[in-house]
Amino acid sequence: MTTGTTTSTLLRRLALPFAAVVMLAIPGAYAEERPVIMTTKASADEIREFCTNIADAARDQRYLLQKKELEDLQKGVDERIKTLEARRAEYEDWLKRRNDFLKSAEANLVEIYRKMKPDAAASQLAALDPEIASAIVMKLPPRQSSTILGEMPADKAAMLTRIIASASDANTSKDPS
Rank of each mutant, 00 (worst) to 15 (best):
residue 1 M to I: 14
residue 68 K to F: 09
residue 78 D to R: 06
residue 161 T to I: 15
residue 97 R to P: 03
residue 122 A to V: 11
residue 24 L to Y: 06
residue 134 S to E: 05
residue 167 A to V: 15
residue 19 A to K: 02
residue 156 K to E: 06
residue 130 P to I: 15
residue 30 Y to L: 13
residue 13 R to P: 01
residue 9 T to L: 14
residue 1 M to W: 11
residue 54 I to F: 04
residue 123 S to K: 02
residue 87 R to T: 08
residue 150 G to R: 02
residue 18 F to T: 13
residue 54 I to P: 00
residue 160 L to N: 03
residue 24 L to K: 01
residue 172 T to E: 04
residue 165 A to I: 12
residue 128 L to N: 00
residue 169 D to F: 10
residue 69 E to S: 05
residue 90 E to A: 10
residue 16 L to D: 08
residue 27 P to F: 07
residue 152 M to G: 02
residue 101 F to R: 10
residue 129 D to C: 04
residue 167 A to M: 10
residue 171 N to D: 12
residue 110 V to D: 01
residue 82 K to S: 00
residue 16 L to M: 09
residue 111 E to Q: 14
residue 134 S to T: 15
residue 51 C to R: 09
residue 164 I to E: 06
residue 12 R to K: 14
residue 42 A to G: 01
residue 132 I to F: 04
residue 170 A to L: 14
residue 75 K to Q: 04
residue 81 I to F: 01
residue 144 Q to L: 11
residue 31 A to W: 12
residue 71 E to K: 02
residue 38 M to R: 10
residue 163 I to H: 02
residue 97 R to I: 14
residue 85 E to C: 01
residue 74 Q to P: 03
residue 131 E to M: 04
residue 133 A to Y: 03
residue 44 A to S: 08
residue 164 I to R: 00
residue 149 L to V: 14
residue 168 S to Y: 11
residue 76 G to S: 08
residue 173 S to Y: 09
residue 151 E to Y: 09
residue 33 E to S: 05
residue 79 E to S: 00
residue 107 A to I: 12
residue 43 S to D: 07
residue 130 P to C: 05
residue 114 R to T: 13
residue 101 F to V: 10
residue 118 P to L: 06
residue 26 I to T: 13
residue 28 G to W: 14
residue 141 P to L: 11
residue 54 I to Q: 01
residue 7 T to I: 15
residue 132 I to D: 04
residue 80 R to E: 10
residue 131 E to H: 10
residue 151 E to F: 10
residue 148 I to L: 07
residue 119 D to I: 15
